[in-house]
């Protein structure tokens, strides 16, 4: 059984599989449009020098999210 984390809790280099995208409205839609839907694998690459935002890799490209946005996405650790 893997426990549930949110995307911002990954460590650099760690991957998770998205289980749920929370939030609402335009932000949620934007996240999903960028490919963050249930079942996709996402890896945290690094944090910005000031700790926020975060850089992820998914579907073969790099995406940056703010911590507050990453918190709305639930993942299972791999």
């Amino acid at each position: 059984m893997s426990s549930t984390y949110t995307l911002d809790q990954l460590l650099p280099g760690q991957s998770g599989r998205v289980t749920r995208v929370g939030g609402e409205g335009a932000l949620r839609r934007r996240l999903m449009d960028m490919g963050l839907v249930a079942g996709v694998d996402v890896m945290l690459l690094k944090r910005a020098p000031l700790g926020d935002p975060l850089e992820y890799k998914l579907r073969g490209y790099h995406l940056s999210l703010r911590k507050s946005e990453a918190q709305t996405i639930q993942v299972d650790l791999q």
Binding site: A26, P53, E55, Y61, L63, S64, R66
Partner: peptide, 12 residues
């Protein structure tokens, strides 16, 4: 105004 998401692609 709704908060602007910072969902940003970092291109190669």
């Amino acid at each position: 105004a709704p908060p602007q998401p910072f969902v940003l692609e970092l291109p190669p």
